[in-house]
Computed example of a mutant assay.
Amino acid sequence: MSSDVRVREPDARLPVTAGRPIVHGRRHGRRAVVGLGRHLVLIAMSLLLFLPFYWMVISALKTNTQILSPDLQWFPDPITWGNLPAVLSHPGFPFLQMLANSVFYSGAVTIGTVLSSALVGYGFARMRFPGRNLLFAVTMATMMIPSLIIFIPTYVLFRTLGMIGTWAPLIAPQFLGSAFFIFLMRQFFLTVPGELSDAARVDGAGEFRIFWQIMLPLVKPALAVVAVFTWLGTWNDFFGPLVYLSDPDLYPLSMGLFAFQSQRSTEWGLLMAASVLVTLPLIVLFAFTQRYFLRGISLSGIQG
Rank of each mutant, 00 (worst) to 15 (best):
residue 103 V to N: 00
residue 98 M to D: 00
residue 159 R to V: 09
residue 62 K to R: 10
residue 144 M to C: 03
residue 75 F to K: 13
residue 67 I to N: 14
residue 111 I to R: 07
residue 67 I to C: 15
residue 167 W to M: 09
residue 176 L to K: 09
residue 146 P to Q: 07
residue 181 F to G: 11
residue 146 P to R: 04
residue 106 S to P: 12
residue 65 T to D: 13
residue 139 T to F: 11
residue 173 P to F: 02
residue 127 M to K: 05
residue 110 T to Q: 11
residue 172 A to W: 07
residue 65 T to G: 13
residue 81 W to E: 09
residue 172 A to P: 00
residue 119 L to W: 03
residue 144 M to A: 12
residue 160 T to A: 09
residue 97 Q to G: 04
residue 138 V to M: 11
residue 97 Q to H: 04
residue 101 N to F: 00
residue 160 T to N: 11
residue 92 G to A: 07
residue 126 R to D: 07
residue 157 L to K: 15
residue 161 L to Y: 14
residue 128 R to Y: 09
residue 175 F to T: 02
residue 92 G to C: 01
residue 122 Y to G: 04
residue 171 I to F: 06
residue 79 I to A: 09
residue 74 W to R: 09
residue 84 L to D: 01
residue 63 T to L: 03
residue 154 T to N: 12
residue 149 I to H: 04
residue 68 L to H: 10
residue 124 F to S: 03
residue 111 I to H: 10
residue 132 R to I: 05
residue 75 F to S: 10
residue 127 M to C: 07
residue 68 L to A: 15
residue 181 F to C: 15
residue 71 D to F: 15
residue 89 S to R: 06
residue 175 F to G: 01
residue 171 I to L: 08
residue 88 L to V: 12
residue 131 G to P: 08
residue 97 Q to Y: 00
residue 167 W to T: 06
residue 179 A to C: 08
residue 136 F to H: 11
residue 110 T to Y: 11
residue 81 W to T: 05
residue 177 G to T: 00
residue 167 W to N: 07
residue 88 L to G: 05
residue 77 D to L: 14
residue 71 D to G: 10
residue 159 R to Q: 14
residue 161 L to I: 12
residue 123 G to M: 05
residue 71 D to M: 07
residue 131 G to A: 06
residue 172 A to M: 08
residue 123 G to R: 02
residue 152 I to D: 02
residue 137 A to V: 07
residue 77 D to T: 14
residue 118 A to I: 05
residue 72 L to K: 06
residue 82 G to Y: 01
